[in-house]
């Protein structure tokens, strides 16, 4: 009788776990309710209660700034629902401000579009709570298996094409992250993952913090969320490679 190692049996019995994303839309279990952005269920200017409920000032009567949103859900009682697209990252910070609260068209061509090969990602924390870090690292677990899409993690910025930055930059991390950025060979891309990196999240305005990663190094893609789910981060990496695709039913 052939001896099957127990770990192989375990893997076999669990079957294929890997998401079909981006070839099919992300499934609800891959994105918790608070994993996507809030969208008004009626015209935004009628939801007059909503701006005062929002703790980060993300909501005004004409727009919702997804970059400021920390997914606290308080606006859910004031006419919003977590129904935004998973593919919500943008190449320009301003495009995260959704006029009328609805997402506009998205720019999907990143600075690495002509690379034509697999890419290497270097993760840098500049002041996170650790949740964003773990959502980025989750991309290598069998559920997301970023390697199948030619995305690998590397241990050195010198071997990296993409700097993925999490957390709100503290003064102490300004120089280290600049040095890491400079160590990347060109062409390179920077992805700011999470509300903290985009604009400080709930900590915006605390002393000793740079407000946003953009103020420290150039940013090529902004991924909203607190934290963004792994599929949203995957989409953002693919977008910088010019390889993102909008799955059927997506934006």
């Amino acid at each position: 009788m052939i001896h099957v190692p127990s770990w192989l049996q375990l893997a076999w019995e669990r079957g294929i776990l890997t998401t079909k994303y981006p070839f099919e839309p992300a499934r609800p279990e891959e994105v918790s309710p608070a994993g996507v952005g809030p969208v008004p269920t009626s015209p935004l200017d009628q939801l007059t209660d909503a701006p005062a409920r929002c703790p980060t000032g993300a909501i005004t009567l004409d727009a919702v700034d997804q970059g400021k949103c920390v997914r606290c859900a308080r606006c859910l009682g004031a006419g919003f629902a977590f129904t935004g697209p998973v593919e919500s990252s943008e190449a320009r910070r301003g495009d995260l401000v959704w006029a009328g609260g609805r997402p506009g068209a998205q720019t999907n061509d990143g600075p690495l579009a002509d690379l034509g090969r697999s890419i290497h990602v270097y993760l840098v924390d500049v002041g996170s709570c650790m949740a964003c870090n773990l959502e980025v690292l989750a991309l290598s677990n069998p559920y997301y298996d970023s390697q199948r899409l030619g995305i690998f993690f590397t241990n050195s910025p010198r071997h990296a094409d993409v700097l993925v930055v999490v957390g709100v930059p503290t003064e102490e991390m300004v120089e280290p992250v600049r040095r890491a950025y400079e160590a990347l060979p060109a062409p390179k891309a920077v992805i700011a993952v999470g509300a903290c990196a985009i604009g400080g999240g709930v900590f915006a305005g605390n002393p000793g913090l740079k407000g946003a990663l953009e103020q420290v190094i150039p940013v090529d893609r902004f991924v909203p969320g607190c934290p963004p789910p792994p599929v949203a981060i995957l989409h953002a990496i693919l977008a910088t490679m010019g390889r993102s695709r909008t799955p059927p039913g997506g934006r």
């Binding site: 606290c72 859900a73 977590f82 934290p227 789910p229």
Partner: peptide, 14 residues
């Protein structure tokens, strides 16, 4: 409603 339980015990949370 949240993978990291943010807001889980707060009124008006996810």
């Amino acid at each position: 409603g949240h993978r990291w339980l943010f807001g889980a015990f707060l009124p008006g949370g996810p």
